[in-house]
Design a protein around this nucleic acid. Structure first.
Length: 941
RNA sequence: GCCGCGGUGGCGGAAUGGCAGACGCAAUCGACUCAAAAUCGAUCGACCGCAAGGUCAUGAGAGUUCGACUCUCUCCCGCGGCACCA
């Protein structure tokens, strides 16, 4: 028996003092071995936590001894909800609890003898760290990768914050299990969808567990298919209004009218009076006198015609179907000749009246317009609450002879995404998501109330209810019909919440003959199912649509309405918020905080009570800010960033943790990264691991780093379960505390037992009796030092070197520990030299006891500075081998023969064996199977 | 529902086409001891047999093979992921 406590504490102090694990400033031959960034919880470690740390520690020690410079750091993912929730209860500031918790964690990790270089320690909640989180946000912002938009987002009513899709599990909050609801909010997103394809392709080269790759692949959810347009069946009557200096024969009009005639659609176009010198009264009056308007009329105006259209609609006594502005504007500001109509038209509009008088409104604007600024289209669409289509016209300002975009805009069509364009003939109805933007436009007056009620009902449901297990499909008819482009049949348009607004186009063609869901819906609502012949995918795409790739992945929502996180470094200035400027929002113009003003510090004068608004909004200090542009009073963004943003880049910071000039020195990043071996739990498969890959790719595009994949090799540790075989948890009362285990058996025993329990990646229960096995082994090692003497046992030690080396490389730590035990069982006597080799092999597993024994042998230098032993392949081979003799596949004898013996020799010996002879008696050998050094099998008849 | 991983003694597990159960725990017996602990030695899948030996056995059933825990198919059970993704 040895006293683990004395020697473990002694050597831990000594190693600290000697800076044994100091990372070299610049590596010659590097390995970066990393554990996933832990959250320092208040409960401290249980024995399940360090299993991965022990594995990376063994690997790091082994790798150092094999001649590499190793970066093996540890730090804290210290921002997050638990510290904040604790603060709400206890009134203790998260900064204080975080400090206490990290101190506790560090102490426990040191107790286990882990060889981290603590001079590289980082903490995500430290301003020195989150300054660079904010800096990275600004780089993303500049590149358009960080943007703010209004969208339906996941909202946790308990934690009072929004969540990313990845953080909603089974419709519930990942943190607290509360059912998540959908809210329409303006939030910050990272544009991870831009990287969908690269995130998918990048997986191929990585040495990662297959299930993790598959989960990421499924999460990205790429599917190839087609987008197909279904034209609305409703017969509109068009009234066309040409622009300044135009005519019914000018620009695209003759082509458009001809196209509509072919489709048997009614249209009317005038030559407006005084086209070179128009006045509002004259033109509007002309239109009102010469055209008739009813519920099917659509007014389409080009350029100044769109203004005439608006003025006409203001004066109508009837409601019309819709209004389309092509290259329209609402102020006489032109690029070529400014303010030409300033006085002949009145530049104010009664938009409320216009909206009330029109079923739908649409603005189509040319992004390369040389006459009307594209901005005018945006403003017009906004004031109209209409759809905006920004496109590139054939000729600037839609002055081409043919403008297909105009056709698309005026003939309402519904786009669907399908992976089965070949079943187009079988599409017998169509379904839109209740949130689809066209719902209002296409619904007929008779169906309006039903549709409105259904949409309201849908909004009340949570995401969980919408996707509930029963999956009872509901829906309502809009009154509208579209035309199936393949069969030319009229098919009804429904809305139903089994169609998701957020995927594809938010609309589907329903093929009940081929799709289970569509069939269920069709049966319930008595919609036709008729089975039509298939056409080929290629043919369908070519004739009726265009190829399209869709992803399930959505952009990463990073705003959190909580306190304990990195503030989003954006300022809003009303003064600078000139209308129309890109980036303006209702709260003023968005201005990124200048880099030299970082970090935006978390204020201390806040209470943390979550109210749905970020606690930062209630800080006086935080909100006393001047606009960096105009120096006037301004307002800060009150939200903080998702903690997964902090952990998205921490592995860069570890290379250069205290740099106050850059987020990490370029040279150091280049020297150490990417991470060679990364170890952590499989629960981060689509969270942290996807985000970190996105970060790295984005930084690659920003030319900040020179590689695209952060983690070359990934291994997941299996959970250690409680002794009862269930997950360790406070509520079950089955938590095993490592402090007690170390106290009773020592850190070396804890380390070796965790490695011995079973395969590294499997879940396995802790056994309170099982650990005594490794403790007995270490006691045996301790006693052995007294008894070694000369012995010719080289073969065994060479075999052991080979076995331990390959087992560490392959993460087969359990069989490595078994091999140590076996070796000692089989070698009662050995030379001092071989004993020392044994200790060196054991050192990464049991660093304390081996160091003590090593120095007792008279060595002055640490065992952990020794060179990893090499083995001689020849010496690992046995001279004599056991060869099995089988008759009909059944073992009848075992022979000891010189290794490498050939078939004739083995056969001769086998046939001489009495038992074999007996089994072969009177039988004919029809075949012999011989595997050298393994077996010979006689097949008899 | 779909996708993935797994199922081996009383227990944790080993063996990835070639002697199933390495290594460890627990258990039983023995040595040492006045005794206990520690340590050392032996036994340890089931069944038949005094023994030599034989038969069965890796969730169930089939198949491929001279030979299957290992490969293929069907089913059962457990765990994890996704979940109306068109």
């Amino acid at each position: 028996m040895y006293n683990s406590k004395d020697i473990e504490e002694k050597w831990q102090k000594q190693w600290d003092k000697d800076q044994l694990y100091k990372t070299p400033e610049h590596p010659k031959k590097k390995q970066y071995i990393l554990d996933m960034f832990p959250y320092p919880s208040g409960a401290g470690l249980h024995v399940g936590h360090p299993i991965g740390y022990i594995a990376t520690d063994i690997l790091s020690r082994f790798t150092r001894m094999s001649g590499y410079d190793v970066l093996h750091p540890m730090g804290w993912d210290a921002f997050g909800l638990p510290a904040e929730n604790y603060a709400i209860q206890s009134k203790v500031h998260p900064r204080i609890t975080t400090r206490q918790n990290t101190d506790r964690f560090r102490e426990q990790l040191k107790m286990i003898g882990l060889s981290y270089d603590w001079s590289h320690e980082i903490n995500a909640s430290d301003p020195e760290y989150y300054r660079w989180t904010q800096w990275l946000f600004l780089q993303f912002y500049k590149k358009g990768l960080a943007y703010k938009k209004e969208a339906y987002v996941n909202w946790c009513p308990k934690d009072q914050t929004v969540l990313a899709n990845e953080q909603v599990i089974d419709g519930k909050c990942e943190r607290c299990g509360t059912v998540v609801v959908q809210k329409l909010l303006s939030q910050w997103f990272f544009k991870i969808t831009d990287y969908a394809d690269r995130l998918l392709e990048g997986l191929e080269k990585l040495d990662w567990p297959k299930p993790i790759k598959l989960m990421q692949k499924n999460w990205i959810g790429r599917s190839e298919g087609a987008e197909i347009d279904f034209l609305l069946e409703r017969k509109f009557k068009y009234v066309f209004l040409h622009g300044f200096d135009g005519s019914s024969k000018g620009s695209f009009w003759p082509w458009l009218i001809n196209e509509l005639e072919n489709k048997k659609i009614q249209s009317l176009i005038f030559d407006l009076p005084n086209t070179n010198n128009p006045t509002e009264e004259e033109q509007v009056g002309f239109v009102l006198r010469n055209a008739q308007f009813d519920e099917n009329t659509v007014i389409v105006g080009h350029s100044l015609g769109s203004v005439v259209g608006l003025k006409v609609i203001e004066k109508l006594r009837v409601k019309i179907a819709g209004y389309v502005a092509v290259g329209g504007f609402l102020e006489p500001k032109f690029k070529d000749h400014p303010r030409i109509f300033e006085n002949s038209f009145k530049w104010n509009f009664d938009f409320n009246k216009i909206k009330a008088n029109t079923g739908f409104r649409k603005v189509i604007s040319d992004l390369n317009d040389e006459v009307v600024p594209a901005e005018q289209g945006r403003l017009l669409a906004k004031d109209l609450s209409g759809d905006l289509v920004e496109t590139a016209a054939q000729k600037s300002h839609f002055q081409g002879r043919m403008e297909p975009a105009v056709m698309d805009a005026i003939l309402p069509s519904i786009k669907v995404f399908t992976t089965r364009p070949d079943t187009l003939f079988g599409a017998t109805y169509m379904v839109l998501a209740p949130e689809h933007p066209l719902v209002e436009q296409i619904t007929t007056p008779e169906q309006k109330n039903y549709v409105i009620n259904y949409v309201i009902e849908t909004k009340k449901k949570t995401e969980l209810q919408r996707t509930a297990l029963e999956k009872i499909k509901t829906g309502v008819f809009t009154g509208a019909f579209t035309v199936n482009p393949a069969t030319k049949e009229k098919i009804p348009v429904w809305i139903a919440d089994y169609v998701l607004a957020t995927y594809g186009t938010g609309a589907i063609m329903a093929v009940p003959a081929h799709d289970q869901r569509d069939r269920e819906f069709a049966e319930k609502y008595k919609l036709p199912i008729t089975d039509k012949p298939l056409l080929s995918v290629a043919e369908a795409i070519k004739k009726f649509g265009r190829a399209k790739v869709q992803y399930k992945l959505r952009d990463w929502l990073i705003s959190r309405q909580r306190y304990w996180g990195a503030p989003i470094p954006i300022i809003y200035c009303e003064n600078c918020g000139m209308s129309g400027e890109a980036g303006s929002a209702s709260g003023g113009q968005m201005i990124p905080v200048p880099e030299e003003d970082l970090p935006v510090l978390l204020p201390t004068d806040v209470d943390f009570l979550p109210t749905g608004e970020s606690p930062l909004a209630r800080s006086k200090k935080f909100n006393q800010v001047k606009c960096p542009k105009c120096n006037g009073p301004a307002r800060r963004d009150h939200d903080t960033m998702d903690t997964f943003v902090d952990s998205g880049w921490y592995f860069f910071r570890f290379t250069d943790p205290h740099n106050d000039k850059v987020f990490a020195d370029k040279k150091k990043v280049k020297e150490w990264l990417p991470v060679d071996t990364y170890v952590g739990g499989a629960d981060h498969a689509v969270l942290h691991l996807l985000y970190a890959r996105f970060f790295t790719k984005a930084l690659f595009d920003l030319k900040i780093v020179g590689f695209e994949e952060p983690f070359l090799k990934l291994r997941n540790q299996g959970n250690i379960l409680g002794p009862d075989g269930t997950k360790m948890s406070k509520s079950r009362g089955n938590i095993v505390n490592p402090d007690e285990v170390v106290d009773q058996y020592g850190a070396d025993s804890l380390r070796m037992y965790e490695m011995f329990m079973g395969p590294f990646e499997d879940a396995k229960p802790w056994s309170t009796t099982g650990i005594v096995g490794v403790k007995r082994f270490l006691d045996k090692v301790w006693r052995y030092q007294q008894v070694f003497e000369a012995g010719p046992d080289n073969k065994q030690i060479h075999k052991l070197v080979k076995k331990i080396t390959s087992d560490i490389e392959n993460f087969k730590f359990n069989t490595a520990v078994a091999a140590f035990m076996e070796f000692l069982n089989e070698n009662k006597i050995m030379s001092k030299e071989n004993w020392e080799t044994f200790l060196i092999l054991l050192a990464p597993f049991a660093p304390h006891i081996t160091e003590e024994l090593w120095q007792q042998l008279g060595h002055k230098e640490s065992i952990h500075k020794q060179v990893w032993p090499k083995f001689d392949e020849k010496l690992t081979k046995e001279k004599m081998v056991a060869v099995v003799v089988q008759v009909l596949g059944r073992v009848r004898a075992t022979l000891q023969v010189p290794s490498g013996s050939d078939q004739t020799v083995v056969k001769k010996l086998a046939l001489a064996d009495a038992k074999v002879k007996k089994n072969l008696e009177g039988k004919e050998i029809v075949r012999e199977v011989f595997v050298q050094d393994k077996l010979i099998n006689f097949v008899i008849k």
